[in-house]
Simulated assay, not measured.
Amino acid sequence: MRGTASACGSATITNAIATGEGGAFAIDLRVKSTVSLTEDRSEISGKVGDTGEDPELIEICVEKVLEREGVRDQFGAQIETDTELPIAVGLSSSSAAANATVLATYAALGEEVEPEEAIEIGIESAFDAGATVTGAFDDAAASYLGGGVVTDNDNREILKKIDVDPKLRVLIYLPSGRSYTTEVDVERIRFLEELISVPRESALNGNFFGAQTVNGLIYSSVLGYDPQPALDAISAGAECSGLTGTGPATVAVSKKKNVEKIINVWNSKEGRVLRTRPSREGARIENGR
């Protein structure tokens, strides 16, 4: 039995590390996961494409689903993911991989799962794998549900849903390097709680663009990233721009007419630029059984 599912990456509106409340919106770059259930009950083995990344997260996701469904003693599994998302740059590749793998496992079993339960399994798996600091409920919810969300990560509650116009364009500037969230100095960030409350409140009040920009500038300063790519994007006409996650990627949201201006500015820097859009569609089954 085999199931394939995919889930979106996401970009930050407000980062949850400082306050426990965050926000993110889905982008139309996906991680696809294929889960093949096997009769070899002794092994659950994963492969993260051709990246060489540790597959522990996706292996734990499958283990947890099989345990919840009471069939761990019947099946092992082979898992493979394929991603359109760059890994460890702030675009929720771990949340997307977990969501896709959980949903693919249910598809392989021929069973349905409620979104809340699927997200919960992915988050618990991320904690077990040591792949998260906050649980990244904001990233996981945006990835699974599509659209934008503002969340209470500590209580895993969606505080507000945001409809991000899919006609907008999302541009991503990728300098060299990677940043794993679990390697970030959390204590250095948590003293920002009062300051970060400003963009958080803006997001709750519907000012998605302002929240994303201010959050990104604050986190760039604290984490030691150059804020100039974001400022350049705004000068070139972006609706908003800022660091996503714990970096190093910078995201800009723009109307179509300003896309080439922003790309031209960013192309003058070392690194590369990706183009995508906001996504209203979240996780989906590609095929099952």
Rank of each mutant, 00 (worst) to 15 (best):
E80I: 11
I123F: 06
V265S: 13
K47L: 13
V164R: 02
R178C: 00
E111I: 02
T19S: 15
E286L: 15
G9N: 09
R272A: 04
L109Y: 06
N264D: 14
D40W: 02
G282K: 10
G210V: 09
I158L: 05
Y173R: 04
S202Y: 12
A88S: 14
M1W: 06
A140T: 10
I218G: 05
L195V: 14
V65G: 01
K161Q: 15
G52L: 08
G3M: 07
E63W: 05
S221I: 01
G206I: 10
K47G: 01
A98Q: 07
R68N: 15
D154T: 14
A107Y: 07
A203K: 07
S94M: 07
N207D: 15
S143D: 12
G148N: 09
L109R: 07
P175N: 10
D185M: 03
F75L: 05
E67T: 14
R68L: 15
D139N: 15
I87G: 01
E201K: 15
E239V: 11
D226V: 08
A211V: 07
L109T: 10
G135C: 10
K64N: 14
S235Q: 05
G52E: 08
N215M: 01
A203Y: 02
G216F: 02
T244D: 06
E114Q: 13
I13Y: 03
P166N: 09
A129N: 08
T132G: 08
D163F: 14
K160L: 13
I79K: 01
A230H: 02
L231S: 01
G242L: 07
L195C: 13
A77G: 12
S220E: 02
T132K: 07
S221M: 11
K160N: 09
E201G: 08
T151W: 05
R190S: 12
K261W: 00
E67W: 04
I44T: 11
P199H: 09
